[in-house]
Design a protein around this nucleic acid. Structure first.
Lengths: 287, 287
DNA sequence: ATCTTCCTGTGATTTTTTTTCACAGCTTAT
DNA sequence: ATAAGCTGTGAAAAAAAATCACAGGAAGAT
């Protein structure tokens, strides 16, 4: 699956590209020119292309060679930098948090400033991705998720509570419709939202039209703009309800899904992780 | 000088980080767990830090390990991508051009659109850096420079012509001062500009005050704003003179420095390079 | 408790890769 | 013509990496 060139020859190649000379490159690396020659050859064999032109008077990068050299230079620089960090920096790195985009936008981000005041020494790096997560692949410390998928058993799990959802619309839209002939706003990342709601309650909503959005972020924006009624998980609508931008005329219902925080089951105790987790638990409004 | 971790163990480490298991990582790479164990150990020895916690039930990345793994993942992905390009893409890559920032801003960039129309298939990537250049280190194809430094002899040189410079100010400023009690605008990247001018001509400029800027870009901006009189190389002021934003009341003087285009002396004939070089020669106003 | 399973670490050995050495060939400069 | 300065390459040496085989520790099953 992965198709990575042999790594060891890269250093020789990099040096050769830099000095446009195998001999000089070898000299800089305390090698013989033969070693550099063979390293370059190994890469050329791998690529099936010449990376250098060999002229009698010296070597010159080909177009491809120059392209590759540029990337190799960048890569080596990044490794050098990362290495430097690991070797010297005994301090802690950023806390990487993964969170669904809508939850991040409508709930986490507005509160992050507050957490920053609470724990100013913790640098948080938020990456918004949804669905099943592989903490290792995303190299995240922590993920906030709806527990609607199976995650590797090895992760630490902190249960936050069951999700509560409610149909929401703008106060004026409710005034206007009173539950009749409503425009149902759907969200593609949660296509069963309305079905779920209907199976949980016996409220009657007379629907007239339907409209679809890619994320809660959009459908809830639309509902607060008076375009119809959307289903929203509590954390995503709480602020707007408090502010009077949305109302939940049918109240909230608790669903079968829990919200969880996933983290690495490392024996290393990271106080930042504990602190952030507890803060989330406190903040997230759950049933 | 360079401090790069051993490269070969990176693949094993990456896999181990991904699967949080030496055995599984080895399995994926068609190796034995011992090989992975030793690869990780080699990196740990290099860093002088543990990258994994070893618990009886498995291994867990340490904080540093996770940090390093993130970078290694990025690096490998970049190499994979670059490798893919080199292996499949027989097309030509972008033309990388290096140019002094002020020349780029005030002369090249406004004309680049025109070149794009002339040769739409040539993608130009402009990087603005000044002074002595190492085309290899910057992995540029071509550099436009004032020949006031020694470059490696191995480069191709195209002479464009001698630089011409002139004191310039806004028409209204000239109207107001008529050469008396002027505010001299200096540029730190060419500190001898005024001395050079004075040694070339016998015009008398009565200076009252002096003001310093980091780049021609700023000092010329200031002069066209009527803040004083600056020295400007012809290409940098030509457009503003044509537009009536600047005047050169003392005319231009030819300096001892030539402008040159440096490129790789590769036996590979790159038509884009030739075309661009000729276009530059045509466009650059020189004495 | 005991057994089994599932990990990892490591010494000794084998295999593979990398480097060197020594020489050849080529082109430009003297 | 000779010398100097490149690179390529076969054979040998050195170094690095991988394997094998075993050991030890902890969790889970019996």
């Amino acid at each position: 699956m992965k198709n990575i060139p042999p790594l060891s020859p890269l250093i020789s190649f990099h040096s050769a590209a830099k000095y446009q000379s195998f001999t000089e490159a070898a000299h800089q690396l305390n090698l013989t020119h033969g070693a550099v020659s063979r390293a370059v050859k190994q890469l050329e064999d791998y690529f099936g292309t010449k990376l250098f032109h060999r002229e009698s008077r010296g070597v010159y990068l080909t177009e491809k060679g120059r392209y590759f050299a540029k990337h190799v230079a960048r890569v080596l620089k990044e490794l050098e930098h990362a290495s430097e960090q690991v070797r010297t920096n005994s301090e802690q790195f950023k806390l990487y948090v993964s969170c669904e985009p809508s939850l991040a936008m409508r709930w986490l981000m507005p509160r992050l400033e507050e957490f920053k005041e609470l724990a100013p020494h913790i640098d948080i790096h938020l990456s918004t991705s949804g669905g099943p997560i592989d903490l290792c692949a995303e190299s995240a410390h922590l993920a906030i998720r709806r527990a609607d998928f199976a995650w590797p058993k090895k992760y630490n799990v902190t249960l936050i509570g069951n999700e509560r959802i409610a149909p929401v619309c703008s106060p004026s839209y409710w005034e206007k419709t009173r539950g009749n002939d409503m425009n149902l706003l759907h969200t593609r990342t949660r296509p069963t939202a309305w079905e779920d709601w209907k199976s949980l309650t016996s409220f009657k909503i007379s629907e007239l039209t339907n409209q679809f959005f890619d994320h809660f972020y959009f459908s809830l924006q639309a509902s607060s703009a008076g375009m119809g009624i959307a289903i929203g998980p509590e954390p995503l609508v709480k602020d707007d309800i408090d502010r009077g931008l949305l109302v939940a005329p049918f109240g909230f219902q608790t669903t079968e899904f829990e919200y969880v925080i996933l983290s690495h089951a490392s024996p290393e105790v990271d106080h930042r992780l504990i602190k952030f987790t507890e803060w989330i638990k406190e903040q997230l409004p759950m049933g």
